[in-house]
């Protein structure tokens, strides 16, 4: 069985995402004492670190799926699933539960990376799960630690707690009502990092943003939770107000936009990933607002996910040329938006 066969489903946390706060995530990285970080390790040393970590992990991951990230294709595939990230390397081993809620990654940029993701506004929940894993693991491993810096990590952006919380938000109202300067003002004051979610993280696409805690030194993890939570609440309020303003003062313009996006998705023959995100996210917004004649939000979530280059190409068992991908995408979206599969 090909490695991607068991990943033919949309990640459940993505499929069940919340309306404004799409999903919440906590992750931490740790390294074993006295060992180089993976980027500097030879393959023998990597195997040794793997064995040492796996001994205490094997019961936990007994029912998990195991994938060796040994090709760039696999790396890109799991980056699109948001288990790896754009800075990940080839050469790690991944364990994920079937819901892709909890993942352990061994020998990526650090010896161990744990991540927990849940749909909707679940910051408290992911925080507790991650903290519990931190506590358990502290008793099982000898982690690299210094009195001065705390936990030692391969990247100086993680030194200290090695812990980060992040939230994925869908905020088309703020973007369409041109309230972006309000969120910028809010984020400048807070110790928060703002990123895009699809493709390169520096660009914001599809009206999704990802905000995460910034500091791993000088701030305790409870405090960083509180700070992020405050920003999320403020953003949700701004998004709700923006939606009210749009409905009250620009309903026709909004309907026009939705109709145009629908028409393009129904008839285009060439569709880039970026363009698909733009139109699908407008339709998703319309579905949330209860507009008639647009696909169901659940269908749209799925389409947004499977329009990404590597996943789209996995539908064709990776037998599609890069140059054909934009045709395939247009075809795929036409079929589903028109509802030709009756779904």
């Amino acid at each position: 069985m090909a490695w991607f066969e068991s990943f033919r489903v949309t990640p459940p946390w993505w499929q069940a995402q919340g309306k404004i706060v799409a999903s919440s995530r906590a992750r931490f990285v740790r390294n074993l004492e006295g060992k180089k970080f993976p980027e500097r390790m030879e393959s023998e040393e990597k195997k040794e670190v793997f064995r040492e970590i796996f001994v205490s992990l094997k019961d936990t991951v007994a029912e998990f799926k195991e994938v060796e990230i040994n090709t760039v294709l696999k790396k890109d595939f799991f980056t699109e699933r948001h288990i790896l990230n754009s800075e990940s390397n080839v050469g790690s081993v991944l364990y994920t539960d079937h819901a892709e809620e909890e993942t352990y990654l061994i020998n990526d940029r650090d010896h161990l990376r744990f991540q927990v993701t849940m749909p909707g506004d679940a910051l408290r929940e992911v925080f507790s799960v991650a903290r519990q894993r931190i506590r358990t693991m502290e008793g099982e491993y000898n982690f690299s630690y210094s009195d001065t810096f705390g936990y030692l990590t391969s990247s100086l952006t993680n030194t200290g707690t090695g812990f980060r919380l992040s939230v994925l938000m869908f905020i088309p109202g703020i973007f369409l009502a041109r309230e972006t300067e309000k969120i910028l003002a809010l984020l400048v004051k807070a110790p928060i990092v703002l990123r895009g979610f699809f493709g390169g993280r520096s660009e914001i696409k599809g009206n999704y943003i990802q905000i995460s805690t910034k500091f791993t030194l000088g701030v305790g993890i409870e405090d960083s939770l509180r700070m992020l939570d405050e920003v999320v609440k403020a953003l949700v309020e701004t998004e709700k107000k923006s939606r009210d303003i749009l409905i009250a003062s620009a309903r026709v313009e909004l309907e026009d936009r939705v109709a145009r996006s629908l028409a393009i998705l129904e008839s285009a023959r060439i569709m880039s990933y970026d363009e698909s995100l733009e139109h699908l996210s407008i339709l998703k917004f319309a579905a949330q607002l209860g507009f008639e004649g647009v696909p169901d939000e659940k269908v749209l979530n799925r389409l947004i996910f499977w329009s990404s280059p590597v996943h789209l190409s996995s539908l064709e068992n990776f037998e599609v040329k890069d140059s054909e991908l934009d045709f395939k995408r247009a075809e795929f979206l036409r079929k589903w938006v028109r509802g030709e599969d009756g779904n």
Binding site: R131, I134, D147, T148, F149, G150, L156, T157, T159, G160, T161, F163, K214, F215, T216, L217, G218, V219, G220, I221, E222, D223
Partner: peptide, 19 residues
């Protein structure tokens, strides 16, 4: 590294994992 961390994180001291 202390200099880099100061710039990057505004602090070089570990605040612990908990409150």
């Amino acid at each position: 590294i202390k200099d880099l961390l100061k710039k990057l994180q505004g602090s070089t001291s570990f605040a612990g994992m908990d409150d």
